[in-house]
């Protein structure tokens, strides 16, 4: 399917907006947090996006933004970038591990470093930092001491 056509069809979904084409095989779309669950099911089952490349969390100071990169495992290599805005006080979103097994540790990492809570994740705990670590270091308001020496 053409990327423009794909983005157009996906924009019809509830809560979807801002559809655009980034490159010839990469589309971009925004989705609300409430509609994400059914949107991702459609994406996996009807449009054949079978590979979850990456889940990145961005701290926009006013809120958080989750950026999903999905792709199709074939010679065309089509990709879709999905954006979800999250409020700063309740950064929660539905987990997608039941659809893409590979999303498991990406969600754990987003929780570990950015403090996003994924509802329905089977084992949401820290993956890179030690268990007793305080705070989520990739947030912009995380303050830490830098051992800077005078020369």
């Amino acid at each position: 399917m053409e990327t423009g056509q794909l983005v157009q069809q996906l924009t019809q979904h509830d809560g979807a907006s801002d559809g655009s084409v980034l490159r010839s095989n990469v589309g971009r779309i925004s989705i609300t947090r409430e509609a994400s669950h059914s949107f991702f099911s459609t994406l996996k089952n009807d449009f054949g996006f079978d590979h979850c490349s990456l889940i990145s969390a961005v701290d926009n100071q006013t809120g958080f933004e989750l950026v999903y990169h999905f792709s199709i495992v074939d010679a065309a290599g089509q990709m879709l970038e999905v954006h979800i805005d999250l409020p700063r006080d309740t950064p929660t979103v539905d987990s997608i591990t039941h659809l893409w097994g590979g999303a498991d540790w990406h969600e754990r990492e987003a929780y570990d470093l950015m403090g996003i809570y994924f509802i329905g994740h089977p084992d949401l705990k820290r993956v890179l930092l030690p268990d007793g670590f305080a705070g989520h270091p990739l947030r912009k308001d995380y303050v830490y001491e830098i051992h800077e020496e005078e020369w």
């Binding site: 095989n25 079978d50 590979h51 979850c52 490349s53 495992v73 074939d74 010679a75 065309a76 290599g77 990709m79 893409w100 097994g101 590979g102 999303a103």
Partner: peptide, 24 residues
């Protein structure tokens, strides 16, 4: 392998001809 997100030589060794040098 595709579901778990395995890529690269580990995926191609299962018979999937997916190579980003060609696909993207």
């Amino acid at each position: 392998a595709i579901n778990w997100g395995i890529t690269g030589p580990n995926l191609r060794s299962a018979g999937v001809p997916f190579d980003l040098r060609q696909a993207d």
